[in-house]
Nucleic acid binder design. Structure first.
Lengths: 239, 239
DNA sequence: TTGATGAATTGATATACAATTGATTATAGT
DNA sequence: ACTATAATCAATTGTATATCAATTCATCAA
């Protein structure tokens, strides 16, 4: 017995469950990409400051959940094919310090019929959703999403909007994103920015325009995102 | 046993998988055309610095995926049906109007030994290359590339710098980029910006930091790019 | 035109060593 | 009973090297 074991861990989950949940979060969030190989168990255990046996319990848990493939003599390989938000593994906002758990609060939801801001719906009816996006609880970005109203047959609830919209689309409406294009530039923040949101932010923000197409090649989404470059960056990866 | 084998390959995929993924990317991207014949296995293995058996594992993998036809006594032939539908992402600078033929002029090439700007070389020796990048002839971005001098065994010529460095590395030195990460933010342009380069540009530019790793997982490149948001945007495309 | 020959190339297999995970056992704390 | 640590050994894979078999292809001669 070396260090703490259980003395200082009162009220917390067992170590192996904490580890497996941490890794599961990273896999689902796309921090660890599909196909990626983890460090050797002994190296990883040493880095985490735990015994190999404990780590192996955590990895076995991930294997049961289908998130990890364990190959004797080779290594542990991440399997993340089932989730629909694999895009986040490649393009996403994250903290300058790395990572960050995303959350969002809704500013407004409006049905807009005639507009020149966007033009991809056939009927010309849109939903415009404005959200404040946070990473680890701190304000990171302002977001304005435009949806083709013809798609939205089920009423949108705040619950849907604070979660992943893509998840909602796939499970409720049977459509999913098959292609995404992001255009990144710099701009001033929009006028609907709350005064208390990133008060120290510079007048120059990062600006992302995202266009999303569904599996039939129809444009289904257009969004604008202004992010505070003092705390947040846009990350693009290519494996 | 030759050199490193697995010592420096922690967390990286097995070599034969790295090789097959690299070749698969080149086939899908059209770098290697349909029907093209690969080098003899022994030649190719020697150029890549691996054993024939390892290369053969990689080629067998490609054959399983239907990307390669292997004819005993003749050679390995690429089969690119174009029906492949795997995830593919990429990112680049392009004009606001779309596209743009890239070109570059060199501002300076310096050998720098002690610096705190970057830190990824073991010896601490770098080449710093500063370029002006143009799209369709108009100024688009300023670029500062840092290379590990330990890699550069062959003298760099201006030809290499205006062409793709990646191509040079792969064919001449047997190393290639297997992973890239871009971090996009906003910033002021650097002080070495020529006065006549984008004179109308705003004081706030788009700013990209790129990190590139080779097939061994060693960082081999770091670059900074400032782009003029009046003319240029950073584009990220997925699938 | 035909057939034989030999070089070049890939196919297949075996060996040796290293690296990695799988599994078991023992010990101790809560 | 559950959790955590530690120390084993076994089983599998990864890589390098070597050797031989099978196939293709070009060349040459009849």
């Amino acid at each position: 017995m070396t260090t703490e074991q259980n003395a200082t861990r009162r009220g917390r989950l067992p170590m192996h469950l904490e580890i497996s949940e941490m890794l599961a979060r990273e896999i689902k969030a796309g921090v660890i990409l599909d196909g990626e190989k983890l460090e050797p168990e002994r190296v990883m255990a040493k880095r985490l400051g735990i015994a190999v046996g404990t780590l192996r319990k955590a990895l076995a848990q991930l294997h049961e959940n289908g998130l990890l493939e364990r190959v004797q003599g080779s290594g542990n390989y991440v399997r993340n094919t089932g989730t629909d938000n694999t895009i986040y593994g490649y393009f996403r906002l994250e903290l300058l310090t790395g990572g960050g758990l995303p959350s969002a609060t809704i500013v407004s939801v409006d049905a807009i019929t005639d507009t020149d801001t966007v033009r991809f719906s056939e009927q010309g009816d849109y939903y415009r959703i404005r959200r404040l996006r946070h990473l680890n609880g701190t304000g990171a970005a302002l977001e304005e999403i435009w949806l083709d109203a013809a798609y939205v047959t089920t009423p949108i609830t705040p619950q849907h909007l604070s979660d992943s919209l893509y998840q909602f689309y796939k499970s409720e409406l049977g459509i999913w994103i098959s292609r995404v294009e992001d255009s990144i530039s710099a701009d001033q923040p929009p006028d609907w920015r709350p005064a208390d949101f990133c008060p120290a932010a510079k007048p120059c923000w990062g600006y992302v325009e995202r266009t999303g197409w569904d599996q039939h090649g129809r444009q289904m989404e257009f969004s604008k995102t202004w992010f505070d470059t003092d705390t947040t960056r846009y990350l693009a990866r290519w494996k």
